[in-house]
Design a protein around this nucleic acid. Sequence first.
RNA 1: GCGCCGUUGGUGAAGUGGUUAACACGCUAGUUUGUGGCACUAGUAUGCAUGAGUUCGAUUCUCAUACGACGCC
Length: 374
Amino acid sequence: MKKIKYNLIRQDGNARYGEIETRYGTYETPMFMPVGTRASVKGLTPDQVKECSSGIALANTYHLWLRPGEDIVQKCGGLHKFMNYDRPILTDSGGFQVFSLAKNKEKDITEEGVHFKSHIDGMNLLLTPEKSIEIQNKLDSDIAMSFDECPPASADYEYLKNSIERTLRWAERGKKVHNNPHQALFGIVQGGPHKDLRKYSAEKTVEMDFDGYSIGGVANDGESKEDMYKAIDYSTPYLPKDKVRYLMGVGEPIDILEGVERGVDIFDCVLPTRIARHGQAFTREGKKNLNNAQYIEDLRPIEDECDCYCCKNFSRAYIRHLITVGESLGGTLLSIHNIRFLIKMTEEIRESIKEGRFLKYKENFIKKYNSKKK
RNA sequence: GCGCCGUUGGUGAAGUGGUUAACACGCUAGUUUGUGGCACUAGUAUGCAUGAGUUCGAUUCUCAUACGACGCC
């Protein structure tokens, strides 16, 4: 009956090195979590994901609710058995998806929940805080997320003020129905880039006593980097030290570093797999587009020093070939590289925090990462 | 040999006597942050087989040449 437990081991400034204990083992933080929206990290087998030294993986409540349905997953023995991933799983609440599907924001987002049309068959549906938690209970993930309102980056102060109040009420409602004894439940801090709203949202959420806390409403379309960093800056100071902090949806290497510096422990992002499918690779010197003609005869791996399956076995020329002809193996290999890249990065971040040189590590990383930019 | 039709970019092609020659694919580059997977954005023919003519002006009209398809002897 053990929920997750976070142990803070060392701090370097606000950067934290720690570990998360779960029923599927103990994993170190800072951590990057690969995203497997529909109970699958796109293009990868669970073994391939684990080979990247993955810890927690993500799945999505909205998608699994529509197909195959939470009851099917439950009958199959829960999400871990269903997708054969024997490490921890976090389920997103579905809020993010549902908000992008709600056409008429004013009318469709109500106190009860969010009305929207299924992206599959157009059916009118309603997702409520209770429903989201009930689905996640059945999916049997290790961490469930509260159902929050995810306002666009363009939302103004007044809108956000009302929005965080509603998110707090929704968090309370979700908490009441949450009944999976070995599933942790996280609260979500909102409030845009505004200091007072973030502070208020964080303090009120913490009062409800969740198993961990996320910073939401970042990495939205059109949001500036400055606003994202502000959102973190104004949230983490009000979060308890002995609970995990999760920055939702962030996965650009530099943003991970900025998050860690501000006291964030875990990150998730679709970026490594999405850009992989479109032919791009993270490297120490910034993103590389393997579609580019310069790689046609390039026999080198994407990165000489990388220890991933892709870099140990395949050339840039081969990957470019796969990508340009549309072979899905190209996306798979690049996804392995990109996921490993971010996880390796978090391993190095942990070492640097343990040794008290995180800021130096960050500075060097960013310098090299931006070195090829004009 | 005669007749007839055709010849537009890397490809398939649309089109007009008068500023920037449609569209698609390809190619080139860029984008992508709690995934409505396999998308989006931008660029990509200084020239419409070659030569001459008509015209203020021709890729568009006329003639010749070259090449190609079809038909006939």
